[in-house]
Amino acid sequence: MHLFPQDRCLICHEIIHPAIGWGALFSQEKEHFICPKCDGRFEKIDGEACRICNRPFHSLDGKFRDGNLCHDCYRWEEEPEWQGFLDKNNSLFLYNDFLKEVIAKFKFRGDYVLAKVFAPFFKDELARIAPDFLVPIPLSRERLVERGFNQAAALLIASGYPTTELLTRIHSEKQSKKSRSERIHLPQVFKVEPNISLEGKKVVLVDDIYTTGSTLRHAAKLLKEAGAASIQSLTIAR
């Protein structure tokens, strides 16, 4: 029995020592989910970045940049059948080794409670974007049963936002094993829920990682064709 349970870091399980000061005394204490040391290992995305996918330019070779777009987005936008579907991606952190470990534990090991680590950041972003619909990227039925939960939906639930299941997956193969060109030239992997009107709506797609943007662009294309006014995406990692 712990009479006075101390907050423990959800990532490293060390005890979190609360900061003592006037602020802590007079304002309502925020709940602490991670320790300052783990917090410091996340690298926030800031500075100049690609207009669409949010890829920071400071770590990118100049030859992979075309104006205010990165070369990947430039190539997507060049193709008429993919042009202008994804308006903007928002990502919280760089996909560094530390974040890789945390996301792997969250998604593949299935440590659901780690969604709380990202929830405060998701709340801030979603308050800023103010979407009409929040759509988690769906898993196939078989993968959902294997993992026990959908990691994108878990992030939204932990942030206190409702999810709208506008999409279902028709293909079940794993994305992570495919090359870029295989991903891009894949037939449509999603279908849209027909009974919800998307006319003029602002939709935000939610996923854990933005890698090539192919999943998100496939989903965005479908939703725009179904009438949505704008599609943004929100992910933990870029």
């Binding site: 090991r109 026990g148 639930i157």
Partner: peptide, 20 residues
């Protein structure tokens, strides 16, 4: 910790200590 489990359809308790 707990999670909404797609396998049993309930809020399921799980052990974080040996989750690796």
């Amino acid at each position: 910790a707990y999670y909404p489990c797609a396998r049993c359809g309930e809020t399921c308790l799980y052990c974080r200590q040996c989750i690796m």
